[in-house]
Design a protein around this nucleic acid. Structure first.
Length: 147
DNA sequence: GCCAACGTTGGC
DNA sequence: GCCAACGTTGGC
């Protein structure tokens, strides 16, 4: 799951109340479907720092609340406000995530690409524009040993 | 339904 | 700041 650390970093997550935050603001239909239908309580995710000096995986978090309507879509003051979304049939969803651990170092995108077993990770693929992408069990296990 | 224009993402 | 990639929008 990607976030720009200048907006919200893994340290921000660790400092959040209950070390938990709503992963909101997603405005892509494919990712919306995963948030609404696929991602389950107890699922683990990597926290990926994007659009920053050292892009890469910073740590691990856990889904503690399954998909529910993203409140920011109904807030006219919010940057992610969507006037086209109907409260009876919300367009956008979010989940709550909790800090699990921060790696001793960021596992950089270059390092990820340098490991053959990780080369096919969806997040690394050319043209990927999704803010959340699946990780296979093999990739997950391999990566944990790096972090 | 096509597709050009436009906006966003995100590594570099 | 650049630019490739690609999703969205809107005129037709």
């Amino acid at each position: 799951m990607k976030s720009e650390p200048s907006v919200f970093s893994i340290d921000d997550l660790a400092k959040s109340p209950k070390q938990t935050t709503a992963w909101d603001g997603v405005r892509n239909y494919q990712v919306r479907n995963w948030l609404r239908d696929t991602i389950k309580k107890g699922d683990l995710a990597f926290f990926y720092h994007s659009s920053c000096e050292v892009p890469g995986i910073a740590g691990v978090m856990e889904v503690v609340k399954e998909g529910y309507p993203d409140p920011t879509q109904f807030d006219p003051e919010d940057h992610h406000y969507d006037p086209g979304s109907d409260s009876d049939n919300p367009r956008w969803y979010c989940v709550d995530v909790k800090f699990k651990k921060k790696f001793k170092r960021v596992i950089t995108i270059d390092e990820l690409r340098s490991h053959k077993p990780l080369a096919k990770m969806q997040v690394l693929q050319r043209g990927n524009r999704l803010s959340i992408t699946p990780v296979t069990k093999a990739e997950w296990d391999y990566l944990l040993r790096l972090g």
